[in-house]
Amino acid sequence: MNAKSAGHTTADGRKIGGVLMEMKNITLRFGGVTAIKDISFDIREGEIRAIIGPNGAGKSSMLNVISGFYVPTEGEVWFKGYKRGPMKPYQVARLGIARTFQNIALFDGMSVLDNIMTGRLTMMKSGLLSQALWIGNAEKEEHAHREKVEKIIDFLEIQNIRKTPVGRLPYGLKKRVELARALAAEPKLLLLDEPMAGMNVEEKEDMSRFVLDVNDEFGTTIALIEHDMGVVMDLSDRVVVMDYGKKIGDGTPDEVRNNQDVIDAYLGVAHD
């Protein structure tokens, strides 16, 4: 894997570019607990990168390190060729990183449309006063943002719930709205924390299709955590496997599937 420095093309014709983000020897400790132990891997531009592992393997911690929410105790995070220091959430968003959450974090009382509009907050330039009074650039800006949001609504096929309060939606649709909000920020890198958790087969298939379409249509790089092995193997270009905070495998789905350490971690090992 590491041998390739320039871009290459996958079997189905998508372009995979150079390294977008690189994690170098990341270690994360909470007091005496070591959540992540010396992990290195990279995420390339345009790819779908999955992080898998059994419960408690440190996947979510890893995603939080990527998103900048946790600052690693040791190691470096490089993004777009620059070493990244500690950051505030809005700085992360401005860098072009957006995420969805394992436990949906939407505004229940607001409509789907308004929820998605919040995704564009960091891009709004007109001030509080002009927005409140609807003067100056506020109207023009709102129209431009609304247009972008409508494209996403169309893309994710949620036109029929545009005006529905999020609290009234079923779980699967809420997940889709969350994806929409993340997309509204036009991210370079999209982080999905268990996008299929708690879904039935049909919803999973829909969501998988949307994830693939997002990657294909917008060229968005996607890093996702997922439990469902079938989904991961179908979706991802490359997979990182974690167990007890350590990286035990890294490669294409096929390579990972045949990796003895991975098999042991998932199926257990006979102790004798």
């Binding site: 189905d12 014709g13 998508r14 893309f155 299709r209 693939l212 379409d213 294909d216 249509e217």
Partner: peptide, 8 residues
């Protein structure tokens, strides 16, 4: 008509 998903 709809280009979505048709790239590949």
């Amino acid at each position: 008509t709809d280009k979505r998903g048709m790239r590949k």
